[in-house]
Amino acid sequence: MAVTRYALTSDPSVSVEVVSASLACCTLEVQAALNSGALIQVPESDAGPSVIVIAGTVTDALVPSVIELIHAHPGSKVMSFGACATSGGPYWDSPPVSKGIDQFVEVAAYVAGCPPRPDAFIQAIQELLSKRVS
């Protein structure tokens, strides 16, 4: 889990704190997006919204940790990144995998894909920011 503040390169006045929960392969796409140049890292501050990115397969054993992480960042928006976090994805029939994090937390944005492309992450961040700030 990494917490870093990012701003859109196209509009550096708005920044967002990104809490990335790296649970499986989708996290590579999140990392690719964070380092793509579309987002720039800005100094830590309390201002602006916070996004928790759940990227990867959430097994039943991991559910308490995911809930704990989300509770540790009150007011944060939850992004369900990829098919696994959204619905179980390719593991939809597997007994130890949870069938979507929206069963136990409120999700602000769903990103489709297995994995979603890095630009989908940027798009999701933009959409979350525009809702919060406008």
Binding site: D60, A61, W92, D93, S94, P95, P96
Partner: peptide
């Protein structure tokens, strides 16, 4: 290591039916 304790059937044996495939 991975399997939930309450699941008694070994998942990689072909006789083990995934319940989700029956219930969905």
């Amino acid at each position: 290591l991975l399997r939930h304790e309450s699941l008694s059937l070994p998942p990689l044996r072909k006789t083990t039916v995934l319940a989700a495939r029956v219930l969905t």
